[in-house]
């Protein structure tokens, strides 16, 4: 464990806290992509199957359960609970996620770590996580302006994988046989997708006054 990875996990947890607060307190899922939340639920449920047989640390196992529980709760609230479910707009949030899931599944089959069924599923979850934010970014693009809490949610989510990139650099230079090309590649793509958002987020938050984040 190193500071980058710890901060990355904390940023990830923060993104869950912000989103859960927003949809439970704010009683609205407006501006939030259910599609992206469904993809995250698939990512965590598939990647953390090894909860039952791989025990790396209590920290790891505990957060795996937390991430599966939070992502499932978010999908449940936006899909089934009133009044949130009425604030979700299927016409706006209509990104064809099958075009994300399909290629990631093929990539997981072809490019993975140990050619075992779990490793294929694990690689699938890594590739899927890299593109899972796309429906959310497309929704924000359509709306042009980003609600304040939503902008903090997306920023925390982007920061989590950005911090993981630093963690991989740190581990590469401090551990001898550390090699994780799959997550290095996927994590770089994932963080890259946020660059444009980060630019507009920074522009809107600069100088302290919180002007709304505007996406062109």
């Amino acid at each position: 464990m190193n500071i980058f990875r710890f901060l990355g996990d904390m940023s990830h947890i923060l993104s869950f806290v912000i989103l859960l607060l927003k949809i439970t307190q704010g009683k609205s899922a407006a501006g939030i992509s259910l599609r992206t939340q469904e993809l995250y639920m698939i990512v965590f449920c598939s990647r953390y199957l090894d909860l039952f047989w791989n025990f790396s640390s209590l920290y790891n196992s505990f957060l795996k359960v937390v991430f599966i529980a939070c992502s499932s709760a978010i999908v449940y609230i936006i899909r089934f609970k009133s009044p949130q479910k009425d604030t979700w707009n299927p016409e706006l949030d209509n990104f064809p996620i099958q075009y994300l899931i399909g290629p990631c599944a093929v990539a997981g089959l072809l490019i993975n770590q140990d050619w075992t069924p779990f490793e294929m599923i694990w690689a699938f979850s890594i590739y899927l996580e890299a593109v899972a934010i796309l429906p959310q970014l497309f929704l924000l693009q359509k709306q042009g302006e980003v609600e304040n809490l939503t902008s903090h949610y997306v920023a925390a989510l982007g920061a989590y994988r950005g911090l993981y990139l630093m963690n991989w650099v740190y581990r590469y230079f401090t551990e001898d046989d550390y090699l994780q090309r799959i997550v290095w590649f996927a994590g770089t793509v994932q963080t890259g997708l946020y660059i444009d958002f980060f630019y507009h987020y920074y522009q809107s938050k600069r100088g302290g006054l919180s002007r709304p984040v505007k996406l062109p």
């Binding site: 990875r5 996990d9 990830h12 090894d50 791989n54 790396s56 640390s57 790891n60 957060l63 795996k64 991430f67 770590q113 140990d114 075992t116 490793e119 694990w122 993981y164 963690n167 997550v183």
Partner: peptide, 10 residues
Amino acid sequence: LAPERVHDEL
């Protein structure tokens, strides 16, 4: 076969 490396990251 390389020993299966346990994924220690989330």
